[in-house]
Nucleic acid binder design. Structure first.
Lengths: 126, 126
DNA sequence: CACGATAGAAACCACATGGTTATACAACCA
DNA sequence: TGGTTGTATAACCATGTGGTTTCTATCGTG
């Protein structure tokens, strides 16, 4: 399991409320650094540092728009993190049985993805 | 949302591979501190510190068995963390359509749970 | 070209974290 | 009572983190 460091970085990135807020904001669409910094009582370099952490965890990627460096959310590491949590479905089942099948499905999706493709065979309800 | 600090503590606790390993071990059943310390190239006080972090995040609880202080996994904070991740299902859907329905269901389960019930249709396969 | 705006880098500070060793406390056993 | 086992605490160290301010670099516009 070489993804240990990725999990480390992902969970560490998620452990800060500012960074979670940034991700929440990015879930609504791309944003520049200053746009991201606005709602926070914090300097722009501080936000840049947070973005670096998020970038290192692969949670955001950056583009180029003139001197702007727009950020966008990358969901893949979140998937890894969720997959790790899902590994506890066996234990969870003691208290939350209905989750069992769902998280089991997530595992299946992971393996499908690892195999190379995740074309949706039925494409139901998107 | 007052659970910010709980999320902080939970994700921070999960960010360390030793602590994740401890949780993995505990998912298989209760264990004492020395039992938990054994597999690691690390002193017992170091493990105690990790346990303190896990305890502060509510991820483990401790019992009493003579001079042993057995640890057991507590899943509730993991649920909170997963719920947070699930909030991004809308974004995930762009790339991983099949997850959408699943994570959507998790939301439903959360609400059902809040309401009070979650009967298990089969409970098989662990 | 110079200016203004956007963003990154450097240097610094306070504090948290992850580890160590040594010590103390608590509970059982002889 | 004393010894042994299990665990927590203390003191300490190195490093990481989150913030600051200041400075630099890049890009578009006048």
């Amino acid at each position: 399991m070489a993804s240990t460091e990725l999990l480390d970085a992902t969970f560490a990135a998620l452990a800060d409320p500012t960074r979670r807020a940034i991700l929440a904001r990015l879930a609504a669409g791309e944003a520049s650094v200053t746009e991201l910094a606005e709602p926070f009582a914090m300097s722009q370099p501080a936000i840049s540092k947070h973005l670096k952490v998020l970038e290192r965890a692969g949670l955001v990627s950056r583009g180029r728009d003139a001197q702007r460096r727009p950020c966008r959310l990358e969901a893949r590491p979140l998937r890894e993190a969720t997959a790790w949590l899902a590994d506890y479905r066996g234990y969870w089942a003691e208290s939350y049985q209905r989750l069992d099948a769902l998280l089991d499905e997530i595992q299946a999706v992971n393996q499908t993805d690892t195999a190379g493709r995740h074309s949706h065979p039925d494409g139901s309800r998107g």
